[in-house]
Write a protein that binds this DNA or RNA. Sequence first.
DNA 1: ATTTTTATGTAAGGTTTTCTAACATTTATT
DNA 2: AATAAATGTTAGAAAACCTTACATAAAAAT
Lengths: 132, 132
Amino acid sequence: MDDKDRRSMPLFGIGIVMKLTELTARQIRYYEEHDLIHPERTSGNQRLFSFNDVDRLLEIKNYLDKGLNLAGIKLLLTGEPGEKEARKSNSEKQDLTDKELRKILRNEIAEAGRFGKASLRQGELSRFFVKH
Amino acid sequence: MDDKDRRSMPLFGIGIVMKLTELTARQIRYYEEHDLIHPERTSGNQRLFSFNDVDRLLEIKNYLDKGLNLAGIKLLLTGEPGEKEARKSNSEKQDLTDKELRKILRNEIAEAGRFGKASLRQGELSRFFVKH
DNA sequence: ATTTTTATGTAAGGTTTTCTAACATTTATT
DNA sequence: AATAAATGTTAGAAAACCTTACATAAAAAT
């Protein structure tokens, strides 16, 4: 079992994930609905989250706190836009995402300066558990 | 958050623990009933297991496979006998436990020889997840 | 050779957790 | 003012888990 397997192993119920991330069930499900995470399911359709999933939720939370919207976060995390944005290709909507990205950068730089390090990977749960 | 906290943090539902350890719910609850593990509970009384708990369950399973009984395992893992054995203090019952312990030792040595290393800590889940 | 104990299986009935779907609310954008 | 994005809330159903009780096979004690 290598590192990749360990971090992608479905382990946590949504209740524990709520505590670990301080997100509500509604939020977590909403982010899944928008393809930002893809937790496994039990045979009975209950969500089972991996370390990777939890890490990603923490990242999402970070970005939201910085004023990003889900579309921007999705672009950042997966490199892919959602359906809506895809349809509008490179019109004004695309510009908005660019604006968001610039906003991120500004924030990132500010945060990094404040703490002396890049804040991007802050709050990575697997850092505390999974051997890298 | 130090290592100790990480490993004793309540994270897993019994369903996941069943898969991780290949024990039945009945077995897991029975071992708890006999004070070999002490998982946390949610506010609604559902068991929540830590890495330590899962590790211990794997150890218990190992010893059972080697022919030990729960009393012996408990003595090994906690250094304390159960209530029944305590009452019978140092009579014949105590001798039996000693015999068990000798049996363990024999088995341990045999296993260690076979694999070149001590087999005692084999199957430690937290080794794969928790940074030591 | 019985009887007893140990470890586990199984079933019932109840409680907790999670699920989806729908509608409500808030804030930011147009 | 109207729309969209993100989250709250509620309801009913399904899944997971809980304890308790009884059953059973194998091992140990008598």
